[in-house]
Amino acid sequence: MKDQHLISLTVNGEPHEVLAESRRTLADVLRHDLGYTGTHLGCEHGICGACTVLVDGVPARSCLMFGVQADGAEIGTVEGLADGDRLSDLQEAFSRRHGLQCGFCTPGFLMLAEAFLAENPDATREEIREAVSANLCRCTGYQGIVEAVADVAESRRERA
């Protein structure tokens, strides 16, 4: 008999209940049980950051967290950034500033950057560079990512 638990979590504002095995990761629950496939699995060791989601507003490596640990949590995934067919300002900036190439790591960077900007609206480029260094990208060289995040930080400051 498998050790399963009924967990309740809210993903991008939508409540879900899932019967999850104790050993199943949050990434697997999101991708396979709930269909949020924007959360990518790269290294599955917590190093690359492609699986980064927000758990109660804090970036977390969903490959290192068990789904049962998310019981009662508010989860944010890349699918929750866009507003219908309209991309978020961060997603548009990544496109405009060439902050993505193959796109595999992009969901993790977007979620990391979203949380970082919420806590650091006045971040400098150096602070942004330090923050995004937590995730790995094999394609872009990071400059486009840093510029995209800096553009959004400036734009959001001007609107506030």
Score class of each variant (00 low, 15 high):
G76V: 12
G46V: 04
V132A: 08
A148P: 03
A123S: 02
D122W: 05
V146R: 05
G46W: 07
F94W: 03
L19Y: 09
I47D: 13
A73G: 02
M111T: 08
L54W: 05
V149T: 04
T106W: 03
A123D: 00
A115I: 06
G72Y: 06
T106I: 05
L87K: 10
A70C: 08
L90Y: 03
T124L: 00
A150L: 02
E147R: 06
L110V: 04
G144N: 01
G144L: 01
Y142S: 12
H98P: 01
A27I: 10
V58I: 14
L34A: 09
N135Q: 09
E74C: 05
V78T: 04
F94Q: 01
C48T: 14
M111H: 09
G67A: 10
T39L: 04
G103E: 08
G144C: 00
L30F: 11
E17V: 12
A113F: 03
R129L: 02
Q143G: 00
S22L: 13
E14P: 06
C139K: 04
E147M: 03
R31S: 04
M1R: 14
R31F: 01
R96C: 01
R61A: 07
P59T: 01
R31I: 04
S155E: 14
R24C: 10
H98F: 08
Q4T: 15
R125G: 06
C51V: 08
L87M: 14
V132P: 07
S62N: 08
M111K: 07
D83A: 14
T39W: 05
P59A: 01
V152Y: 00
L19Q: 15
E92G: 01
L41V: 14
A82K: 11
A150W: 00
F116N: 05
D56V: 02
L112M: 12
C43H: 07
D83N: 14
V29T: 13
T140M: 02
A113W: 02
E127P: 06
G144Y: 01
G99Y: 00
S95Q: 11
V68K: 12
A131H: 06
A153P: 03
F94L: 03
A160N: 13
E21K: 11
D89T: 06
C48S: 09
D89A: 09
T77G: 12
A20K: 14
L100M: 12
E127Q: 15
H16Y: 13
R96T: 10
E21H: 06
N12P: 11
I145A: 06
G49E: 14
A131D: 06
R156K: 13
V149Y: 00
N120R: 15
V29M: 08
G144A: 01
S8T: 13
G72D: 02
N135I: 05
L6A: 14
I128C: 03
L19C: 12
S133W: 06
L34C: 07
G141S: 05
A73S: 15
A27L: 13
I128M: 02
D3C: 01
D3K: 12
T140V: 02
C43T: 02
E126S: 15
P59K: 04
D28G: 15
D3H: 12
P107A: 06
R159C: 03
F66T: 09
D71F: 04
D28N: 15
F104R: 08
I47R: 11
G42A: 13
S62W: 12
T52V: 14
C137R: 05
